[in-house]
Design a protein around this nucleic acid. Sequence first.
DNA 1: AATCAATAAGGAAATTTTTCTTTAATAAAA
DNA 2: TTTTATTAAAGAAAAATTTCCTTATTGATT
Lengths: 217, 217
Amino acid sequence: MVQYSKKFQAVPEPTIRRMPSYLAFAEGLLRKGQQFVSSTQIANYMNIDPTQVTKDLSYTTIVGKTRVGYEVKAIVDVLSEFLGFSVMDNAFLVGAGSLGSALLHDSGLNHFGLKIEAAFDINPATIGRKINDVEVFHIDQFRDLAQELNVIMGIITVPAENAQTVADLMVAWGIKAIWNFTPARIKVPDDIIVQNTTLYSNLAIIFNKLHQEKREE
Amino acid sequence: MVQYSKKFQAVPEPTIRRMPSYLAFAEGLLRKGQQFVSSTQIANYMNIDPTQVTKDLSYTTIVGKTRVGYEVKAIVDVLSEFLGFSVMDNAFLVGAGSLGSALLHDSGLNHFGLKIEAAFDINPATIGRKINDVEVFHIDQFRDLAQELNVIMGIITVPAENAQTVADLMVAWGIKAIWNFTPARIKVPDDIIVQNTTLYSNLAIIFNKLHQEKREE
DNA sequence: AATCAATAAGGAAATTTTTCTTTAATAAAA
DNA sequence: TTTTATTAAAGAAAAATTTCCTTATTGATT
């Protein structure tokens, strides 16, 4: 594994997974005008242990006040910054099908620092159309456009069997990170960051729990 | 935590998360006509340790053959069954916005054992419409329809601030599991299964890795 | 026929993550 | 002013997960 200096200790992935929810909670409190929030409150909201919250927040520069809690505004500011939500990164999306266009419509991505600059597909019916102001190009045009725009992320929302082909293209285009929404795993060079997001994994977890209940009866 | 007999040992969540990818891989091999697959091959595809694969598969009834591997067809059959993808469960979806309609369009859910019977919203523009043959009703009609159809799962794709309200409704309707796509955490009775699927968590992980690279430079 | 190499499987060890415990600080209450 | 209760924070312990190690099996090679 990669070595880090003590200053930049690697943050556990489960911690990073929880942080966006802390942020969403704090944003809500901020809107309601609440100034401080305790780890107990956050833990209660998240249904986790309070020490988990303090441990998680200790990876950031946020410090709490005994008997008071954390400043809500500080959580919002520091966490947005920490999670990389406060700087805008550019992305290309390949596969303007149903999931692809859902992402194109999702303003949340914009809010959390991701701007989808262009979409690509091979379906003539969608090429040339605009989805939520993002134009859909033929995939062959990717190379030219990648030159123009400073795009660091590629989003794959094509059918699973085409995932590797698209990933290869993205690597060739010089993309740094790939967000893969297919259940297929892709092979890329070591320096490319890959995040697999498979909805069906979540479905599997739900079904497993449902069936577990049945087994216990 | 819940107690299980040794026969029905709880399967680690990370294992269940990986299984749909094993399944997708095996389905691909089956289409290509490959009869056997080794843990090494699967591990190579997944970029994980081979023993991880054998450990994961050992939770199921699948057994491998030394020097040969696992039967591809067995993996497909057993894993589909094991993950609950081979029986169809019924769901209601609340929030027919962009993410909601993407899910309605996604044939993968059907393939993996989930049928969305109806969708609900409060937006008059979408009520009455059909999205991929699924009708959109006003949310007040939920109660009546829940009686008719044997719906065990509720899918929440509304804005985060309305998640709790919708969840409360779902619990009142007698739903057993909730698939929550908002970053908000919902409070439900202990016997209700909740699966939180927040896209932005994945975004946070990517950004974190990207920034880590920068720090290492 | 004998040897070699690849593999599954089970157990042990290491690592990671979560939970528990203790301590110190401090706002609120008495 | 003193006491009490709540909290953050740091460290220890426990639990969960992954990786390593060993063994046995068996198809392929010599």
